[in-house]
Design a protein around this nucleic acid. Structure first.
Lengths: 130, 130, 130, 130
DNA sequence: GTGGTCTAGACCACA
DNA sequence: GTGGTCTAGACCACG
C-alpha cells in the first residue's frame, strides 16, 4: 500500500480506509490479526502513534478488536461491516459527483458520459496492471 | 445558499465552491458582479475575512477579477474555467468511487448497480424539489 | 477539578468524565464553549494532546462540537445526552456493587446496610464541604 | 466460570477476582486447595503464566499460600480477608455511584430511585437463573 | 487565538 | 513481543 502525506485527508484515515478495504476484500479474515502497530509503522515509515490512531477508529467501528499482548484481531462481523462501509463510500462518491454536475447545470447526458469516461479509464488502469 | 459550520470542509471553501457552481450554471455571467464582501458576509452570518479568503481563491484561479470601487467581476474566461473545473470534479468523484469499489473487490456489475442507485436517488431528489 | 495520575483509569477519561458531569450539572450550557485545549492543559498541568483526546471522545458522543478557530461548543442535545450517560453510570455502579455482594454470598440485608453506610458517608461528606 | 478476553479488565485480575469471590462465598474452605495452575489453565484455555500471575496476587494478599508439592492452599485468615475485601468492593461501588450522581447534580431522590432499580434488576436476574 | 495532525521517544501493563 | 497512555514539541489550517 502507499500513503500520500501531502493529501488533505489525514494519514491515519488513509490507513484506516486501506485496512477497511483489505478486510472487505478478504485479505484479512475473521479471527486473523492485522499487522502489529510497530510492523505497519516500519513498513509505511510513519510513527506508530499514527497507526494506532487508525486502529482505534477501526476498533470503535467494531471492525477489529484489541487483545493486549497478542494484537488486533478482525471481528466476526468485521467483514460484513467493512463491506457495507465500502459500498456506502462508493455510493457517496457517485452521489456527490452527480449532484456536483447538477449544481453546475450539466445536462444529464453529459454527466452520464463523464461516468462512462471514468469507467473506461479505471477499467483499463486495472488491465494495464495485469 | 447554506453553510454548514460543522462540516470538515472549511467554510471559505464551501463558499468558493458555491460561487464556482453558480458561475458554471450561468447564474453570474461574464462582466457581472458577484455579491460584495459585506453583503455576502451579512447574508451568511460569517466573518468577512472568510468571504475574502474565498474570493482570493477564485481570483487566483482567474474566475473573478477585482474592479476597484465596483466589486469583483466574473471574467470572460471564468465561465469556461468554472465549467471545466466542475467537469473535472465530477470525473474525479466517479473515478474515486470506481476505484474504491475495485479495491474492495466489488464485482463490476455491483459497482454499476450502485451508480444506478445513486443516479435514481439524485434524480428523484431534484424532481421532489420541483 | 482534580486529576489522579496514579489511577488505573486514564487521565483523558478522567477529564472526559469531568466534562460530562459538568455539562449534566448545567455548568456549561448549550452553545457555550468548554475551556480551550491549551487553557485546560495549563490548568491541569497535563499535555494539550491529552485534553484533546478527552474532547475527541466527547465530540464522538455528540456532547460537544468542534468549530475550528473558535473552540468546542456544547451541543443542544448535549445536556440530555450527558444526563442519560450520568444516570447510566450511576446505575452501573450500583448494579456492579449489588452483583459483587451476591457473588460473595452476602445476604441481601448486608448489601442494603452497606448501601446505607455509603449513603450516609457521601451525604455527610457533602455537608462537611458546606 | 467464564473469562472475557475482550474486557478492559485484565484476564489475570478476572481470575483473581473469581477466586476471591469463591473463597468469600465458602466454595473453598481454609486448608483446601485451589485448582492447580495447569488444571485451571486448561479449563480456561489461558496461558499458565496468566494463572500464575493471578495466584501471585492472591498470595501477596495472604489469601492463599503455596505448599510445595501440593498446591496453593486457602489460609485460615483467607476467608475473613476475602470477606472484608468483598465488603469493601461493594461499599466502594456504592460510594462511587452516589458521588457520581451528586457530581451530576442529580437530586438525592433520583439517586435512591436508581439504586432501587438496580436492586430490582439484580434480584430478578438471580431468580431467573434459578 | 482556536482545533487537528504528526513525530519522537518514553514508560507501562499484558500474554 | 503486543497494545495503551502520556509528554514534548512541531507545523498546519481556520476564523
Amino acid at each position: 500500500m502507499s500513503i500520500d502525506p501531502g493529501s488533505p485527508v489525514p494519514i491515519y484515515r488513509q490507513i484506516a480506509d486501506y485496512i477497511r478495504r483489505a478486510v472487505a476484500a478478504g485479505v484479512y479474515r475473521p479471527g486473523e490479526m492485522v499487522p502489529s502497530l510497530r510492523a505497519l509503522a516500519l513498513e509505511l515509515t510513519v510513527n506508530p502513534n499514527t497507526i494506532q490512531r487508525a486502529y482505534e477508529e477501526l476498533e470503535r467501528e467494531g471492525l477489529i478488536r484489541a487483545r493486549k499482548g497478542l494484537g488486533m484481531a478482525v471481528t466476526e462481523q468485521g467483514v460484513k461491516s467493512a463491506r457495507s462501509k465500502s459500498a456506502e463510500a462508493v455510493y457517496n462518491a457517485f452521489d456527490y459527483g452527480i449532484r456536483a454536475g447538477q449544481a453546475a447545470n450539466m445536462p444529464p447526458s453529459t454527466i452520464l458520459e463523464t461516468f462512462e469516461q471514468a469507467w473506461d479509464g479505471a477499467r483499463t488502469a486495472v488491465r494495464s496492471k495485469v
